[in-house]
Design a protein around this nucleic acid. Structure first.
Length: 871
RNA sequence: GCCGAGGUGGUGAAAUGGUAGACACGCUAGACUUAGGAUCUAGUGGGAGAAAUCCUGUGCAGGUUCAAGUCCUGUCCUCGGCACCA
């Protein structure tokens, strides 16, 4: 008999699909749009590994199913090509990034093509192409015009190995996300996006979206909303004040000192000599601040939580009770959170307690736990949670929550402070001192700077404030900067390898390209300089999903409404064009189903939400959340261990596709484990699946052998059950159990086929081909045609099942023999009632009880227990 | 430390409160066959037994229930995220 040759089958159908254009979708005509998106892949040089295949084919299986359910499924693909990872690889192998990426991109697309995913290959997106990064730069300018992109000198995380700045999100355990080098802190001038303006909305909107809870919670924690109060304390004998942020003002009667961060403005003033202190204290302060600055975060952690610090000699006054609070400087207080100053309440905060012990400061108790008012002497006694107020004058007797409300109102009424909300979230640093990214499209003009001019005060019309940014402050920092509207600002082609290497100077390789850097100021016409940094690749990937449905337009980045008079962008569209773009965006935004890795909880997913909100505020989009539903998939391990190059256990999918065919690999990947947790790749499991697929092949190829003319009756409930449960499993992305149901059905069919006539065989196997279509697109076509059908199986509707054939209206009847539960029998309700009646007639004991709102009657018999639902 | 997820065979894993281990991998035995990347049949949680069968069993300890892997309380462990965030 003919042997199963996956290569022959797959190339045959690939060709058929291409010729018949079965994956073409008219985006404007779609009636039930379903935007089925997989998270943007990063084209690593090694090619798509098995984990990528796992997710791409999973998303495709889901998309194919939804298509058969009658949706117009749009499933695009592209590459997130810019970035440090591939650039580092190119430098390592001594090849130009451009040649390397051309090669890897081709390989990537080829691999995805082989897997049989239903992509529209005319709508690909590659972020390193000028026709894409033109719009990434456009996005930057939109942010700039809206006052949401600004440049400032900042202490930033810097990777000495990648020689670039990293965003907070890219630093993991004080190490670079990419190369694991310990990061340094550097003061550089950097571009930032003002994501903090959106902290509150990013937090609040989480309630509205259908995402898994752990991802939502991850974002919530990252945003870190904290409601509290800024309290101002007068510094004795100076006329100065120090403001402390606290979420626990209820404990303020227990305050015994104040600690400010080494970065605090007060400290700077002291060091700069603006505030006089005695020389002994001055040198101590100077030394401490110097030491702290020299320490890396790693060193700080290595020292544990031992508190260090220095007494400034200044004393603040607690407004509530006129108590004197000595002011200290310590690095356990962070300069960037709250006000950079905290009020020390050592009785009710462990860190404050440790500090107080180190410096022999007074510890007071102002909250009692279950009447305990003993003095607090050990760290175990420090009480941070629930309790009742004591030693706090008018707060005494209140619980801590009541006390918090009361004292906040009191302090505000007295004018000593203001309620505020703080967030852990910090502004997004988007500057990167590298080559392989989109140049930041900004121009600096010294002439204009000298005249105090910036983009903001030369084009007041467009400077409308769409957010609560303090524009005055920004103008101060932004003099001489203009957005370049002549997009794209092309990344210059540099052929010499060592000229694209980062040199560690704090400026990117583009700074050395004089042809690129030197330009003309668009405002005054004098010589000016371009920005030499490129933007973070996360800027590329935060908006790509908007581009896919509009790849054929080169005058707009995406569809939507650009007609507003106040718009910061006017592409000059005709009414007709404008309407078409608006209508199409209505269909294809937001993304219906987004599937990707949970490791992007705080990076990509947060940024994408942020830019979508901004574009909504600018009036371009009519939705403010990019992904209606997000599903986080699991990761594939190999023989129980995480796959990594260093361990040498990376599975190369090409090898397996070559050997077993894409269908078997796809099927195995679906079966390997639950899609939302993890799966473990085993070569033996893969070959097992190939055996199963080969068995299926034989079943179909033997369909006509020895078929009887008439068939004996078989119970085909399993056929209907299979269709039903596979459909339900696919809907909820439970691929592994769906495959198990299919295997069960195949086992049943193999046993029963001898008694089935040819038409019945074709009917059953035809239905099986339909439900196999999302899993094994190639073989499903083959099987579908063997069953005597013409059109592509992928254009068919998901099969229906006969509800009457399903086991229903039954009750499970436990059977007990000799006092032990022996099993459960499924019986129809009618039979059960008859049984009940006959038992009642025999006058047995009947006891009724209620459980979960249902009333049951239980009949005890020597050998049986029967449950009956009465109501 | 805080937050989240989870603990079921040799392995991946199934189980609307109803015979735990479906479906597979692996393993054992056998059949077939000039031998293949095979295929087919039977067995496979642990313990006892020649067998029918019996006992035991979902991290641990309790509880609710006629019935608990599933619900409740406590506890231990593993993995993931955050971490001096006031």
């Amino acid at each position: 008999m003919e042997k199963y040759d996956p290569k022959a089958v797959e190339s045959k159908w690939r060709k058929y699909w291409q010729e018949n254009q079965i994956y073409k979708l008219d985006l404007d005509k779609a009636e039930k749009p379903f935007y089925n998106l997989m998270m943007f892949p990063y084209p690593s040089a090694e090619g798509l590994h098995i984990g990528g295949m796992y997710t791409f084919t999973g998303v495709d299986t889901y998309g194919r199913f939804m298509r058969m359910k009658g949706y117009d499924v749009f499933e695009p693909i592209g590459l997130d090509a810019f970035g440090i990872h591939s650039e580092n690889y190119a430098l390592k192998i001594g090849e130009h990034i451009k040649t390397v990426s051309e090669r890897t991109h081709r390989h990537f697309f080829e691999q995805l093509h082989m897997m049989g995913n239903m992509y529209d290959w005319d709508r690909t997106v590659e972020t390193n192409e000028p026709d894409y990064y033109k719009w990434t730069q456009w996005l930057f300018i939109q942010f700039f015009k809206a006052g949401l992109a600004y440049r400032k000198q900042a202490n930033v995380k810097y990777c000495p190995s990648c020689k670039t700045v990293l965003s907070d999100e890219q630093v993991i355990d004080d190490k670079c996300e990419r190369c694991s080098s310990v990061v340094e802190t550097k003061a550089l001038k950097q571009w930032f996006f003002k994501i903090t303006n959106y902290a509150d909305r990013l937090d609040k909107n989480l309630k509205k979206i259908d995402w898994v809870d752990d991802v939502k919670l991850g974002q919530k924690n990252w945003i870190g909303k904290k409601e509290g109060i800024n309290i101002r304390y007068k510094i004795k004998g100076t006329g100065l004040e120090v403001t402390c942020f606290t979420t626990r003002p209820d404990t303020n009667f227990g305050a015994t000192f104040i600690v400010i961060a080494p970065e605090h403005p007060l400290v700077r003033s002291i060091i700069e000599g603006k505030i006089p202190v005695n020389p002994a204290i001055f040198s101590k302060i100077e030394k401490y601040v110097q030491d702290v600055r020299g320490k890396s975060d790693i060193e700080r952690i290595a020292e544990g939580r031992k508190k260090t610090g220095v007494d400034t000699g200044f004393v603040a006054i607690n407004n509530l009770n006129s108590k004197e609070l000595p002011i200290y400087i310590s690095d356990f207080v962070l300069g960037h959170f709250g006000t950079g100053a905290v009020v020390g309440v050592p009785g009710h905060d462990k860190r404050d307690f440790e500090f107080a012990k180190e410096f022999n400061l007074e510890v007071l108790r102002v909250v009692s736990r279950e009447g305990d008012i003993s003095p607090i002497e050990t760290i175990e006694q420090v009480q941070e949670d629930e309790g009742k107020m004591v030693n706090s004058e008018f707060l005494n007797g209140l619980d801590i929550h009541e006390a918090t409300i009361k004292i906040m109102d009191y302090i505000e009424a007295k004018g000593w402070g203001n309620k505020v909300i703080n967030y852990n979230l910090r502004d997004w640093c988007v500057s990167r001192q590298r080559y392989w990214g989109p140049p930041i499209p900004m121009i600096y003009c010294q002439q204009c700077a000298d005249k105090g001019l910036s983009w903001f005060n030369t084009s007041p019309d467009s400077s409308k404030n769409i957010s609560k940014v303090d524009l005055k402050l920004l103008i101060e920092q932004m003099k001489g900067w203009y957005p370049d509207d002549e997009l794209p600002v092309r990344l210059p082609e540099i052929s010499e390898l060592d000229k694209i290497k980062p040199d560690g100077s704090g400026r990117g390789p583009l700074a050395q390209q004089t042809d690129f850097i030197n330009t003309i100021c668009p405002h005054c016409g004098h010589e000016a300089q371009r920005e030499s940094d490129v933007s973070d690749p996360f800027v590329d990937s935060c908006w790509y999903f908007l581009r896919y449905p509009f790849t054929e337009f080169d005058n707009v980045p995406f569809g939507g409404d650009f007609s507003s008079k106040n718009s910061l962008f006017n592409p000059g569209l005709t009414q007709q064009e404008g309407n078409r773009l608006k209508d199409r965006m209505k269909k294809w935004g937001p993304v219906t189903s987004y599937i990707g890795g949970k490791e992007h909880t705080v990076l990509h997913l947060l940024y994408a939400r942020f830019i979508t909100m901004v574009l909504f505020d600018l009036g371009y989009l009519d939705f403010e959340e990019p992904f209606s539903r997000f599903f986080g998939h699991g990761l594939i391990t190999k023989d129980g261990a995480k796959m990594s190059k260093s361990k040498g256990n990376v599975v190369n999918p090409d090898e397996f596709i070559d050997r077993y065919g894409a269908d078997s690999v796809r099927m195995y990947l679906r079966f390997i484990g639950p899609f939302d947790s993890s799966g473990d790749w085993r070569d033996s499991g893969m070959s097992g699946m190939f055996k199963f697929v080969s068995k299926l092949w034989r079943l179909y190829k033997n369909i006509e052998d020895d078929a009887p003319d008439t068939e004996s009756e078989v119970d085909d409930a399993i056929v209907h059950k299979t269709i039903k449960s596979v459909g339900e499993d696919l809907e909820s992305l439970k691929f592994n159990t769906a495959v198990a149901r299919i295997m069960e059905f195949v086992n049943w069919y193999s046993e029963n086929m001898k008694s089935l006539s040819l038409p019945t065989r074709k009917e059953y196997l035809g239905k099986l081909a339909l439900i196999l279509a999302p899993f094994m697109p190639y073989l499903a076509e083959e099987f579908w045609s063997i069953c005597g059908n013409n059109a592509s199986v992928h254009l068919q509707v998901w099969p229906d099942y006969d509800k009457t054939k399903l086991v229903k209206d039954t009750v499970k009847l436990p059977v007990q023999i000799n006092g032990k539960l022996r099993g459960v029998v499924h019986v129809s309700k009618q039979i059960q009632e008859e049984a009940l009646l006959s038992l009642i007639q025999k006058d047995k004991k009947i006891k009724s009880y209620m459980d979960q709102g249902k009333i049951y009657k239980v009949i005890y018999l020597p050998g049986k227990i029967i449950n009956v639902i009465v109501r």
